[in-house]
Design a binder for these strands. Structure first.
Length: 466
DNA sequence: TCTGGGGTCCTAGGACCC
DNA sequence: TCTGGGGTCCTAGGACCC
């Protein structure tokens, strides 16, 4: 696939951004939530908001906000753990539609992509890009039932800013001649790469708008934020962005991490958690046909300070045993006495599988066989994990009593089916009960029933078809 | 307000080599 | 042996993005 800077003399780059994506899918599939505040994210004590519906945003709820704060701001919002299989399906539909526009599609996340129209629409003008983009938006709505905002401009930078300008459900086309007028008055924080820290540094020296930044002294900027960042930001501020739209980039690392419901101090418990994360990472390495040379352990303490310890092996590996050996050795060298909030394991320095890796794999037990319920739920969400961690006292399985009860299988928002009542979704669960609302994407708002949470007539179900 | 999980890229220092 | 300069690899930390 050719990789070249976009044609900067035309609005040839599109940025597609599904509006309030996770929350929008929930409202689409759950009629009773339409027009209501919906918050998708971690539902446990330490969860954060992934996406808030526009109704929830009216209460000041936004991405990355602690869920507990969101609950304070709006008690009667629906708080859902997320259904990533459903989101992935919708995402694939949208990306397939994007590929009908041009082969140059760069997917950024489940809900965002860039498209360079140059190959299929050379010499396009504002009228043509508007027509193409509106047609695309209509198709997305017809196929998925969702709205997508689109920005078009001479570069990724301008397309991205344009897509955000009049969200939701909007198209903004920026001709090259107008890009400076558009960028100049915006606060610097709107530029990609200017986060909280850089934004604060710039504000302190009087740089508030993109126009301020464009007029800044390069040497001073580099001194403040580093070589690459400084020169890059200055170029952005001057609307210079030659980044090509790159269809597929190879992953550089694979990792798994978990924030615990309660800080852990017990080394055996931490080692056990690390082993499970290694298994998840190994499964994904194998699925991707890659192995890696560097194993990293990430650890966040009770006070949020974060450590990384890494070890580079002589040969790349995808074998859970080898990854675990390295990870546990690294973990050994870290003081955990004060309490560990988060633990993670990652593998980087990835290369394609070699013949040796395949042979070595034959000597390995299958990834995950140390786990009593391996891969039961590969798509388990942060919310589910936090919920489970909060329900079961850690280490409760060890000292006494009968085997731990089955973990609460139900997470808020989850798709279920009841033998008698049909398809629905979990509205809430706890104290041995689960409340289900029986409705689907094409029914009226449904009725609620409460069951014992081990009711044999109630089953997990796949996402409903749109 | 007390902060997820999965990533990417950059910087800086030290080891090591020529 | 009292001492240069450049390149590459590794480790650790941090900013940022969705």
């Amino acid at each position: 696939m050719p990789v070249a800077a976009p044609d900067a003399t035309r609005p040839s780059v599109l940025h597609l951004d599904l509006d309030a994506f996770f929350a929008a899918v929930e409202q689409r599939d759950k009629p009773s939530l339409r027009g209501k505040p919906v918050v998708v994210g971690g539902t446990g004590w330490r969860g954060v908001v992934a996406t808030a519906s526009y109704e929830a945003r009216a209460y000041g709820i936004g991405s990355a906000m602690p869920t507990m704060e969101a609950r304070r701001r709006c008690h009667n919002a629906a708080f859902l753990a997320g259904r990533f299989a459903a989101y992935r399906t919708v995402s694939q539909q949208v990306m397939a539609l994007a590929h009908e526009l041009s082969p140059l599609v760069e997917q950024v996340s489940l809900d965002e992509a860039y498209v360079d129209l140059t190959p299929t629409h050379p010499g396009l003008d504002v009228a043509e890009v508007s027509r193409v983009a509106e047609e695309f938006r209509a198709r997305v709505r017809a196929v998925t039932g969702l709205t997508v905002s689109v920005g078009a401009g001479p570069s990724k930078l301008v397309a991205k800013i344009a897509s955000d300008l009049r969200k939701p459900d909007a198209l903004v086309v920026v001709p090259p001649a107008e890009q400076h007028a558009l960028l100049g008055p915006l606060p610097v924080r709107r530029l990609p790469g200017v986060g909280a820290v850089t934004g604060e540094r710039l504000t302190r020296v009087g740089i508030r708008t993109v126009a301020d930044l464009a007029a800044a002294d390069e040497a001073e900027l580099v001194r403040m934020v580093g070589r690459a960042h400084g020169t890059g930001l200055l170029a952005y501020a001057r609307a210079v962005d030659p980044r090509p739209v790159v269809p597929e980039r190879d992953a550089k690392s694979v990792s798994a991490e978990e924030t615990f419901a309660v800080d852990l101090t017990d080394r055996r418990e931490l080692a056990e958690r690390a082993r499970r994360m290694v298994d998840r990472v190994a499964v994904r390495l194998a699925a991707g046909g890659v192995s890696g040379r560097t194993v990293t352990v990430k650890l966040r303490r009770y006070d949020f300070t974060t450590l990384n310890r890494s070890r580079t092996l002589a040969q790349p590996t995808a074998a859970p045993r080898e990854i675990a050996a390295a990870a546990l050795a690294l973990l050994e060298g870290i003081d955990v006495a004060d309490g560990v909030r988060l633990l993670g394991v990652g593998v980087s320095g990835l290369t394609e599988y070699t013949q040796q890796d395949l042979l070595a794999e034959l000597d390995e037990p299958a990834a995950g066989d140390a786990d009593p319920a391996p891969g039961a739920e590969p798509e388990q969400t942060a919310g589910q994990q936090a919920e489970v961690g909060g329900v079961l006292p850690l280490g409760s399985a060890v000292p006494y009593g009968p085997p731990a009860p089955p973990r609460s299988a139900w997470s808020p928002g989850q798709d279920v089916a009841h033998d008698e009542h049909g398809p629905g979704w979990v509205q809430g669960s706890g104290v041995g009960r689960v409340t289900v609302r029986f409705e689907g994407p094409h029914t009226p708002a449904g009725r609620i029933h409460t069951f014992a949470d081990d009711d044999p007539a109630l089953h997990p179900a796949p996402p409903p078809r749109w």
